[in-house]
Simulated scan of single mutants.
Amino acid sequence: MIKGFLMFVCSLIFFLFFNERVKVVQRASAVLVGPGYYVAETDSTFEFKKHKYLIKTREFFDQNGEITDVAILKSEGYLEFSKAEFNKLKNFLKIHSFSKTIAADIIDHHYVEINAKRFLIEGVDKKRKIIFYSSQDQKEMLYYLIYK
């Protein structure tokens, strides 16, 4: 019981003093491109751990963490919406699972917390300032944050 309490106290101290807030400028969701899947020239892709991913959505944020623009992959290509455009559409952000604001903290080298939800870090590219992460809820998806 004392050992458990000490672990809790150490974790709390680490969380309170050692987590790192990052300023997010972009967040994207992507799906693994399977063998034989055709990717159009206009599609955005990236490679991660020797696998190719197709970007499905992108969100862009200002210096205060407020969403400014979004891009959504549809059959006709990426549809882009500015804040002025998507604010005119009822429940647009909610329907597409976008956040009005974003706050991200690196908890440790295993987890990142985004808007009070914890995600597993799959990799970090410190040179390009990208955090790749996944969600237990959507295992087929890979996400990334670009930060300052």
Rank of each mutant, 00 (worst) to 15 (best):
F81I: 11
V70M: 01
N64C: 10
I106T: 04
A103W: 02
E66D: 10
I72R: 01
S99F: 13
F81C: 12
T57L: 05
T101Q: 12
E85T: 08
A103G: 08
K74Y: 09
D108N: 15
E66Y: 11
K83H: 10
E59T: 11
T57P: 08
K74M: 13
F92E: 03
E85K: 08
S82Y: 04
V70N: 01
D62A: 01
L79Y: 14
Y78E: 08
F60K: 05
I95L: 14
I72T: 03
Y78A: 10
N64A: 13
I106Y: 08
D69F: 11
G65K: 03
S82D: 08
D105C: 04
D62R: 03
T68P: 03
T68N: 05
L93I: 09
K74F: 10
K56G: 02
F86V: 07
N87S: 09
D69R: 14
G77S: 02
I102H: 03
G65M: 05
A71H: 01
D62E: 03
D62T: 02
I102D: 00
E80G: 14
K90G: 06
A103S: 15
T68G: 08
S82Q: 04
F86P: 05
I106D: 07
K88V: 07
L79V: 11
I95S: 15
Q63L: 07
D108I: 01
V70F: 01
F98Q: 06
K94F: 15
F60Q: 01
A84V: 12
V70R: 00
Q63W: 02
I107M: 10
A71E: 14
D108P: 02
E85M: 12
A84Q: 10
T57G: 01
H96A: 10
H96R: 13
F86A: 04
N87G: 01
G77M: 00
A104C: 07
K88M: 13
E80L: 13
E80S: 15
A84I: 09
A103L: 14
E76G: 11
N64T: 08
F60E: 04
H96S: 08
T57Y: 07
K83C: 05
E76K: 13
L73T: 03
I67Y: 05
A103E: 13
H96K: 12
G77D: 02
E80W: 09
S99N: 14
E76M: 13
T101N: 14
T101L: 07
S75C: 04
D105Y: 14
F92I: 03
G77Y: 03
D108A: 05
L89A: 07
F81T: 12
S82H: 04
G65Q: 03
D69G: 05
F98S: 06
I102Y: 00
Y78G: 09
K74N: 10
